[in-house]
């Protein structure tokens, strides 16, 4: 985020006359960026330093030479007993969770919004507000019954169990509903005259029109899914199913005994865990702003 803000401000008035206010603006921006970057720098520093040094001196000011070594350890060495939870497998699990989560939420949210906006149903408004109020009931509130159901269905330690119980999304439904309502009525009518049925209209017209909205939702939902901690912790007991976010904790916890905690490795994993969400935000950045602010009609 820091990069985005400063690069936006820079070209606007860096040339021509010098102004003290400009300097002050930049000073504030740069200080803020550095402040926000600091935790990341500490991560990087710890990940590059041998664990003993970190243990002895705490976070230092110099980068070490263990980056490569730690990366290999983090990615390819298993930390648990079964030998299945290597960084790579956790990365894969996280990716499946994040993508499945984002994808599922978008599909379900779009279809729910489509039903609410375009079909004359009894209680459509009530159904919408019912969905909307679930925003007030996050996962944590319903975690025990959800767990029980998932367990009884035999979905523990499966991707289905990781993704499906979380897939209904009031947020996505709400955003798509607002978007669909702004699509001109005539477009629906023109499509009806052109012989497009409900399914065709959805696929041929609504989905392409919602592109930017879908991209924006994808970012939010992917990051949300990727960062899930509580649910994967409850659902996955097999190490081969661990996700990155819960795996990092595992490393630091397990190795706190007689041995030196593997700071470098854990921090390396943390960095790896940060990369995909950042990459996605950078990649979809322009779409994101467009999707949430303007509608392309």
């Amino acid at each position: 985020m820091a990069d985005i803000t400063s690069s936006l401000a820079a070209p606007a008035r860096s040339t021509r006359r010098f102004r003290w206010s400009t300097l002050a603006d930049h000073a504030i921006l740069i200080t803020g960026s550095l402040f926000m970057l600091l935790p990341l720098l500490v991560l990087l520093q710890t990940a590059s330093t041998p664990d003993i040094e970190t243990m002895k001196y705490g976070p230092g000011l110099y980068f070490g030479d263990q980056l490569d070594d730690n990366f290999r350890k983090a990615m390819f060495e298993a930390s648990g007993f079964s030998g299945q939870n290597t960084g790579l497998s956790m990365f894969k699990n996280s990716l499946i969770l994040g993508l499945g989560f984002a994808f599922g939420k978008i599909v379900i949210g779009m279809m729910a919004a489509y039903a609410i906006v375009y079909f004359r149903m009894r209680f459509a408004t009530m159904a919408f507000w019912l969905i909307f109020t679930t925003l007030l009931l996050p996962l944590e509130v319903r975690i025990l019954p959800s767990y029980e159901i998932t367990q009884k269905l035999g979905l523990l330690n499966t991707y289905t169990g990781l993704i499906v119980p979380l897939i209904a999304s009031a947020t996505a439904t709400f955003f798509f509903r607002q978007f669909f309502r702004s699509v001109p009525e005539e477009l629906v009518e023109a499509a009806r005259i052109d012989g497009a049925g409900p399914v065709k209209f959805f696929i041929d017209i609504l989905v392409p029109l919602s592109q930017t909205m879908i991209a924006a939702m994808f970012i939010i939902m992917f990051v949300y899914g990727w960062n899930q901690y509580l649910w994967p912790t409850m659902i996955t007991t097999e190490e081969g199913m661990y996700t990155l976010v819960r795996g990092i904790k595992q490393i630091v916890q397990v190795l706190e005994g007689n041995e030196i905690p593997q700071y470098g490795r854990a921090n390396m994993l943390a960095i790896i865990a940060v990369i995909p969400p950042v990459a996605i935000v950078i990649f979809f950045q322009s779409w994101f702003v467009k999707g949430l602010t303007e509608s392309d009609k």
Partner: peptide, 14 residues
């Protein structure tokens, strides 16, 4: 039948 609308109602993405 075919209909022409006031605001054209063209599909913007096509």
């Amino acid at each position: 039948i075919a209909m022409v609308f006031q605001n054209y109602a063209l599909y913007p993405h096509m």
